[in-house]
Design a protein around this nucleic acid. Structure first.
Lengths: 206, 206
DNA sequence: GTCTATAGGCCGATAGAC
DNA sequence: GTCTATCGGCCTATAGAC
């Protein structure tokens, strides 16, 4: 995912410091509110060094933010081929997905991508491709298996997958993304996921 | 909604110019990327005049952005008490809601609220209260009427309302909010809404 | 209230020494 | 590659005249 990391394995500690500092600052405060002075100070590096590695603030932001997809092995064991209890599997998937979307890091990336997508078109595209789009594709493929097992009744897998994810972006997620509520408790998350799975199963379950 | 407007009915054209300019600039570019010079220039007003009306950039932003709720009479005739064709009514409601959410002005406010909610907590709260929360409350009230008419089968109106709105925030909305796609066509909107209403009705219709 | 002019500082970016 | 030192400019905010 982060291909450039291979070109700087351990080679340039300063560059690594810059990357870490820039990522943290940009994710926390967005593009406009972060200055190159701040990045240099946080990275314990002079501005000249910073500009030796990145041509401009825009280039730094674009480089750091793009390909910042899902580093988490989110999908590991998420889509079992053998399913006894479909409801339980969907609830486990949903809980995992919603938990991931509610992580501070994911939310920060979402907020920055949304806010700066107009100025950095690649950012919106990359976020979508590495995030929601990948998740949906995997879900669609898994739906194919479930369909063959006769566990679901799905005319249009694309729509079924989209709606599963849309149902996860519930009010809990909206309120948290707007910084209204703190991180919801496990109970709140499970309640929201259970309600979403209920609805999805009534539409697509057999 | 905009209470302060009553204190400056037509009285201060300069103040009105400032409000219009600031709103446009902040919505288009966010907080950090807009300067007071820019606001003054766009409003055809000197910076001193600007600071005579608003104590600081933060105060200007907070004043302009808060209580910028739904000026549109979005809800007018949206919730009919007499319903023959429930599906048609839900599709009409959904289309209207999705269209509103996809308007450039609504999206800009959403992006700014999301990006700056951490720095301006009131902003996230106000956006939620004037937008999604109000819509959900009206939907819940309307669901009560539908329930009495025996047209729907809803255990928890809150969940049913939340999920109706979540289903409207579909992939079409996500892609547009990330500036990936242009404004979707009428057909795309209707297809998305129809699929959402299908699913919602299978879960809550009678 | 409104202007011109400017203070004082931080901005992005660079020159030059090592 | 890395530093110190600094450029010219734009930033938020204000002083003082009218």
């Amino acid at each position: 995912m982060d291909i450039s990391a291979e070109f700087v394995p351990e080679g340039s500690p300063k560059r690594r410091q810059i990357q870490v500092a820039a990522e943290q600052l940009f994710l926390a405060h967005g593009y406009g509110a972060v200055s190159m002075d701040q990045v240099a100070r946080t990275a314990s590096v002079s501005k000249a060094t910073l500009y030796a590695h990145f041509a401009s603030k825009e280039a730094l932001f674009a480089t750091i933010m793009q390909d910042k997809g899902l580093e988490t092995p989110l999908y590991e064991g998420m889509f079992p081929e053998q399913v006894d209890d479909l409801r339980a599997v969907l609830e486990s998937m949903g809980t995992r997905l919603l938990r991931f979307m509610l992580r501070e890091r994911t939310l920060s990336l979402y907020r920055v991508a949304l806010a700066e997508a107009a100025r950095f078109p690649e950012l919106g595209r990359t976020f979508y491709a590495n995030g929601p789009c990948t998740m949906r594709e995997r879900f669609i493929a898994w739906l194919g298996v479930m369909d063959q097992s006769g566990l679901v009744q799905v005319d249009d897998r694309d729509i079924a997958a989209e709606q599963f994810m849309a149902l996860m972006r519930s009010d809990v997620f909206l309120r948290r993304s707007l910084s209204i509520d703190p991180l919801p408790t496990d109970e709140e998350i499970e309640r929201s996921v259970r309600a979403a799975v209920d609805t999805w199963l009534r539409a697509f379950g057999r």
